[in-house]
Design a protein around this nucleic acid. Structure first.
Lengths: 210, 210
DNA sequence: ATGCTAAGATAGTAATCAGTTACTATCTTA
DNA sequence: TAAGATAGTAACTGATTACTATCTTAGCAT
């Protein structure tokens, strides 16, 4: 069981490359990831990368596809089979956080990509990812309104924006602190406030009696 | 009135440099800002920059100081003289958004700096900025609880995290869309949900009667 | 006017980057 | 088992980077 066979079929090698980039992004600024550092991480010479990718931009495109695919699959699986729309949204939220905690490089990559002014292929993919994410959210929000779980006066778009923004903010804060675990522990507490902001306002017990 | 005098006193030149970087970051990836591009933007040769800054890192440090100073001043001024803690928080929120909309380079710079793994001087400054920001929020949250505007069962830390996260998410979305104006128009709608999440739950009219 | 000095211009440097080239090793299959 | 296809290596190239050494001048005090 050699863990580092010299020769790999092209598709395997491409997969290894993408995973290497995701791993590297977990410990360093994505814009500082060079083809040389990627190659070193996967124990291959720098030139070998260009046997499998026409250029570096295409490596980033492949990375973003990997991310988008996995993330959407995770949140879809998390929400699957849950009756309550609000509970489904919570499951989406938590699974998203879990995914990011497992791959700390992912938010770095996404934030980095969104910085770009020019519309790179990778940026395109992030944009459609968020678009699809919002579609899913909108559906749950509609259902939630219909079922009476969510406030009927709720601003759908704003609610979706805030959902994603909440995650982004949470992730950003833990990147800042350099503490991935904080993200996990803060997630339920922060979602509780978001939840309170969108749900129908019956059943709250504020306990404020002053 | 020559707008481009050849020689400037050192402090003026440093100020011009910082402003140039902020402007450049408004239209391009901060990590792609080179000393040459900064110099070109301010109509000076590249080498001239190093008469006023020992190295590039120190330019970024100066930029971050500029940002931190201005942003804190703006949100403090916005909240000044407002009785209601909740209203003060709303004013902080809106002035922050306004500041970012005026300087689209600022979030790019901050996000970019937070990406860094190594603790650069500039990153340090962002960290203390957010720390001070949170202090101010905590104060308003405490006051809000005391005055009965905010839910007494509110999780202070989570509320502060979400406040900042909400802004970050909002800004990120508009960076993504490449539309700064969207940020301005979405801000009140998104804040409304956040507000609902933290305030005491009397007086809501959901209108949900199904 | 004159001389001094801070600010800028000019023209470099070494390091690093993505991408290329000529060649070699390994796998596959007829 | 020979031959073609695939994957990898080593060394390189031109472009770009932050930074520097040396020369020039603008603008000020006297």
């Amino acid at each position: 069981m050699d863990t580092h066979p010299k020769h790999l079929p092209a598709d395997k090698r491409r997969a290894v490359t993408v995973e290497s980039v995701v791993e590297l992004a977990g410990t360093q600024n994505p814009s500082k990831i060079t083809t040389a550092s990627i190659a070193k991480h996967m124990r291959v010479t720098q030139g070998a990368l260009f046997r499998h990718f026409p250029n570096k931009e295409d490596i980033w495109r492949a990375v973003m596809e990997w991310v988008a695919e996995r993330l959407l699959a995770r949140i879809d699986r998390a929400a699957q089979g849950i009756e309550s729309p609000l509970a489904a949204m919570e499951a989406m939220f938590m699974s998203h956080i879990k995914f990011v905690a497992e791959h700390p490089g992912v938010p770095r990559i996404m934030f980095g990509e969104l910085q770009r002014a020019e519309p790179t292929p990778a940026k395109r993919i992030v944009q459609t990812l968020i678009q699809r994410y919002e579609e899913r959210l909108q559906r749950f929000i509609e259902q939630g309104k219909a079922s009476g779980e969510l406030s009927s006066s709720l601003d759908n778009e704003a609610a979706a924006t805030l959902f994603i923004g909440t995650i982004q903010g949470l992730v950003m804060q833990s990147l800042l602190a350099g503490d991935v675990e904080r993200m996990r522990s803060d997630a339920p507490r922060v979602f509780a406030i978001y939840r309170r902001g969108i749900e129908r306002d019956i059943g709250h017990k504020t306990g404020n009696s002053q």
